[in-house]
Simulated assay, not measured.
Amino acid sequence: MVRLENVLAPAKLNLFLHITGVRSDGYHLLQSAFVLIDWYDVLHFELRPNSNQISREDLTQVLPERDLIVRAAQALQQAAGVQQGVHIQVEKNIPAEAGMGGGSSDAASTLMALNRLWQLNWSSARLQQLGLTLGADVPFFIGGTNAWVEGIGEQLTPLTGALALPEARMLVVKPQAGLSTSAIFSDPNLKRSKSCATISSFTDSPYDFGCNVLQEVAERKCSEIKKLIFFLKQRKFQVTMTGSGSAVFAKIDDTISDVKLNEVLMQINTEFIGSKAKICKVLSVHPFLDVR
């Protein structure tokens, strides 16, 4: 029996999100900075050498019957002509409809893990090309580093070396309510002509840059987001929504004590029933790339 255990699929945050235009096919042109955080789904893979069957076992009972994990495995199996199968167990922790990229991250980790398990030796670039057919965020997770993002999400500039971001901790909160990405992007009041920014201006102050232009629309559609942001701002946090929501985050200043953070977490759990809150670290590299 050949297995890959405890393959981590990290969530992401959009430090900012601007829309600079709309393509003729209706896709929005974006600028953003994606960062990996240590809020993980956990996947386990068991090789089926004598069968091409792909199966998935949901250990948390929150996944649809055929999600991006299954689709990613099937896409790689077909593209590479693999005759082997796999059984995948999933521990789902990243909230859905949060703007944290959980489904895309699961798909990316599936492609990277099966590339190793099936001994395909595909390059990251080749996996990213396949991943883009599954979702615009999948190539980012396969790339494995924080990134400056443009186009419809497929143009990635790694934030490494001189562009690497300083260490940071984030308070991340997903309210009980979720949001549909399509509903946000189709809203007629969404601002779609933000002027273009530059990487150099961003890296001067990466955790205090720009805004999320989707946030205003999201707050109108989901009062819980607006209440949560107001709650955190009252406690002196600078709060931004990630992606199309509904999760929000705030950088934790070094002057904020652990005692104060624990108090805030307790208040969130009390006042926002059904929410999920976590203190997260910004990662510099995808954990799968550290396990060789």
Rank of each mutant, 00 (worst) to 15 (best):
D290P: 09
I225T: 00
T203N: 07
D254I: 08
E263K: 11
I199T: 12
S193E: 13
L283K: 06
V285S: 13
T198W: 11
G210F: 06
H286I: 11
S284H: 14
V282F: 08
I256H: 13
V217Y: 04
F288T: 04
S205H: 12
K221V: 07
K260Y: 15
D253S: 14
S193A: 11
L289I: 05
S200H: 10
A218Q: 08
I225S: 00
S205R: 08
K278I: 14
L214P: 00
Q238E: 14
M266Q: 09
L190H: 06
Q234W: 10
Q238I: 14
I225N: 03
V291R: 15
T203D: 02
N189L: 15
A277S: 15
C211A: 15
F231Y: 11
F230S: 09
C280M: 07
A197G: 08
K260G: 06
F237M: 05
F209I: 06
G243S: 01
P206M: 08
C280N: 04
V285E: 13
L232P: 07
D204S: 07
A218W: 01
H286V: 03
R235M: 07
M266E: 08
S244F: 00
K278V: 15
A247W: 00
S200L: 14
V285R: 15
C222D: 06
I268P: 14
L283R: 03
G245A: 01
K191R: 11
P287I: 03
A197K: 02
V217F: 01
S275W: 00
N269P: 02
E216I: 04
K227Y: 13
F209V: 10
H286T: 05
R192P: 09
A218K: 01
E224A: 13
C196G: 05
D290C: 14
K278E: 04
M266K: 10
V248D: 00
P188K: 10
D290W: 12
S257C: 13
L265A: 07
P188R: 10
V282H: 05
